[in-house]
Design a protein around this nucleic acid. Structure first.
Length: 167
DNA sequence: GCCAACGTTGGC
DNA sequence: GCCAACGTTGGC
């Protein structure tokens, strides 16, 4: 597969759906997002091959558990028209969908979970959306954010132990 | 179209 | 469980 073109952070509560669940499933539809800004990103911006930081929110501790990638771009979120589903929204229909999802697949589980605290402490990562508008559940990332956190998760560098002048 | 009230997110 | 941040709703 071609190298990822763009990079995203997707948030999930691991009690609802964790990276281990994605590893087990292989692929999943990333649906149930009910925020317009996040919806617009899912619908218009995420493309097959894009890289994903898989973030566990409301977890102890919160942080990035590993990587995934987009396998299918924006398409209607079927959970919106499933009656009884917690994400059911009568305003969305198959002919006029309101909510969108993408399909993602498991890439890797970091040997070392990267806690939010460590991201906060890293000078290179201060401009991440995560640290500025933390509530958005689909966030754009710079490539250097993605690469940096992947390195942290793979232990080749801890960030905080690296001399500041080396940056 | 303003903005107060309200609901949700999510770190702590 | 608390509560700050912030997105959404709805009266005007």
């Amino acid at each position: 597969m071609a190298a990822p073109q763009r990079f995203w952070l997707l948030k999930t509560e691991p009690t609802a759906y964790s990276l281990d669940d994605l590893k087990r499933d292989g692929r999943t539809g990333w649906g149930g997002v009910r925020n317009y800004q996040a919806r617009n990103l899912l619908r218009d911006e995420l493309k097959p091959g894009d890289g994903i930081l898989f973030y566990h929110s409301n977890a102890e501790p919160p942080g990035v558990a590993g990587l995934a990638r987009v396998t299918r771009g924006g398409h209607p979120d079927p959970t919106a028209w499933r009656k009884g589903d917690v994400h059911f929204d009568p305003a969305s229909t198959p002919t006029r969908p309101v909510w969108f999802q993408v399909e993602i697949e498991f890439t890797e589980r970091f040997p070392r979970f990267v806690p939010l605290e460590e991201i906060r402490a890293c000078h290179e990562l201060q401009d991440m959306v995560l640290l500025k508008r933390s509530r958005l559940s689909v966030q754009p990332l710079e490539k250097h954010h993605f690469d940096r956190i992947a390195r942290m998760g793979r232990r080749t560098s801890t960030g905080s132990a690296r001399p500041a002048e080396a940056r």
